[in-house]
Design a protein around this nucleic acid. Structure first.
Length: 454
RNA sequence: CGGGGCGUAGCGCAGUCUGGCAGCGCGUCUGCUUUGGGAGCAGAAGGUCAUCGGUUCAAAUCCGGUCGCCCCGACCA
């Protein structure tokens, strides 16, 4: 993409509404614009990142045996009246009426719709288990939206729903999602720690929040530092082997990790040696939950059993805040110059700068670099604007692309470009071929890591 | 929903107290010079001062209503 043609309105100054760093940087880097309180326009750069995140989420959901489909944003109130939540959900739910004065709502979540779908389309225990997910916009009319896309009213969420014939089978589904979440966040360049969460009326140990550690997080968290040392992507997992998946879950639940909701200072002190105690802030990026027959009973989602009887299916739901992750990744990965994208979610792999537009040698080399980067299938944002070097450097640092390739009079006579990583101070002068190969290898490594263990 | 604050050019702000030509910086456009970390000079464009009403010879400024946005708290993917 040529920068001169791209809609990328970077700002030198921060709009005054932005308080936390991810919000400031997303506005300054031209990723989002606020449309109303907690509602955002996603500009091309921000939308690319969100789509990259969604794609990784999608791949890991599929890998764990889930199927993607799509439910509507607008739901009939009638379903919610049947589940008993229509009155219970409160003013957070946006209620609307159509021209016939039928009661509708903009979905804050989708248990009702999918349970109803399941009830009308699945009849037999032989069809179970099922894991179904979609990535869809939600609306929750929060009292006070804040922190940019981290707590918007409208947000993009992946929600998965599992259906099993028994509580024991449901645990396998839960465990699959648990492991797939570990892999998903690791691939996004995040270290997400599963923490015990409130389970509601069901009880038991079947609810976890996935929290990433970040200074600006909203929750106070306590955990064992051993969580920080595990290389999740190197762990092999066969999702069909219930024992193997359960063993992995045990490995990630045996050490202490709790938010302020469940923190027990005495237990923390007793269980975790002093040198392994971590206390800090965290951001919730995922939540998994088993809720048994809470919706299948009222919405009549039952299956026939082998012995001729029938049973309400056991369900769980599993959420990842996709749009929130865009902000969360920035909270975890930035410096005073701007965003530092992990390679896996970067909107472009390379920022190509021509520092002397109008100089025929520089123009020629930059154009050749742009063409060859495209041939190597490396997403490139080519800054071909007739701007000063400082402007281009600052803009590129702000937008956080992982690799910077500079064409300038310094190296052009020898056919050299300068290559530098966003997270490093070291630059190298290389031939164009060498530079492209280096970036290509780095991107390929990231992809290989993603495949490891799967 | 309780408390506090703010709406003036694309962004950041001054002007409001004490009514009297709507301003500054950045950005944008044109020209010249410059060219490795947000350049210099010269010129230009850009405004329903959130909105509705009131007071006044005169309102960004005073008074009242409404809308929007932000922050703190309680609440939440």
């Amino acid at each position: 993409m040529r920068r001169s043609r791209y809609l990328l309105p970077t700002l030198r100054e921060t709009p005054k509404e932005a308080e936390i760093v991810s919000h400031r940087l997303m506005l300054r880097a031209g990723m989002v614009r606020q449309s109303a309180a907690g509602i955002y326009v996603w500009l091309p750069l921000g939308y690319r990142v969100m789509n990259k995140i969604a794609q990784i989420v999608r791949e890991e959901q599929d890998r764990a045996g889930s199927q993607e489909f799509l439910m509507p944003t607008i739901q009939p109130a009638e379903l919610w009246k049947r589940s008993g939540r229509y009155d219970g959900y409160g003013p957070e739910m946006l209620r609307i009426q159509d021209r016939q004065e039928r009661d509708l709502l903009y979905g804050p979540t989708n248990e009702e719709v999918i349970t109803d779908l399941f009830a009308s389309s699945v009849r037999s225990y032989r069809d179970l288990p099922k894991l179904l997910y979609h990535i869809q916009w939600k609306f929750r009319d929060e009292l006070r939206p804040r922190f940019g896309v981290m707590r918007g009213r409208e947000f993009l969420m992946k929600d998965n729903y599992s259906f099993d014939v028994s509580a024991e089978a449901a645990r396998h589904s839960y465990n699959k999602m648990f492991v797939s979440y570990l892999r998903t966040f690791a691939r996004l360049g995040l270290r997400a720690i599963p923490m015990e969460a409130d389970t509601g009326p069901i009880g038991g140990d079947m609810s976890h929040e996935f929290i990433i550690l970040a200074r600006t997080g909203e929750s106070q968290v306590w955990c064992d530092r051993r969580f920080l040392d595990v290389d999740v992507l190197s762990l092999a997992v066969n999702y069909d082997n219930a024992d193997e998946v359960a063993a992995l879950v045990r490995r990630f639940t045996k050490d202490y990790a709790r938010t302020d909701e469940k923190h027990d200072a005495a237990k923390f002190a007793a269980d975790v040696p002093e040198d392994r105690r971590y206390e800090g802030r965290g951001i919730e990026v995922g939540h998994i939950f088993h809720f048994g027959t809470k919706y299948s009973e009222p919405l009549n989602a039952r299956v026939r059993l082998a012995d001729g009887g029938d049973v309400a299916v056991h369900m769980g739901s599993y959420g990842i805040g996709v749009s929130r992750l865009v902000g969360a990744i920035i909270e975890a990965s930035h410096d005073d110059r701007g965003i530092i994208w992990p390679e896996a979610v970067a909107p472009f792999a390379v920022g190509l700068l021509n520092l002397k537009v109008g100089d025929s040698a520089c123009d020629a080399l930059a154009e050749r670099a742009y063409a060859e980067l495209a041939r190597a299938k490396l997403d490139t944002l080519y800054d071909d604007r007739d701007e000063r070097a400082g402007t281009k450097f600052s803009d590129l640092d702000l937008t956080g692309l992982p690799w910077r390739m500079v064409v300038s009079p310094r190296g052009v006579a020898r056919g050299l470009v300068e290559l530098r990583r966003r997270d490093s101070e070291d630059a190298q002068e290389l031939s164009l071929d060498e530079a492209i190969e280096k970036v290509r290898a780095s991107v390929a490594d990231a992809a290989n890591v993603a495949e490891a263990g799967a």
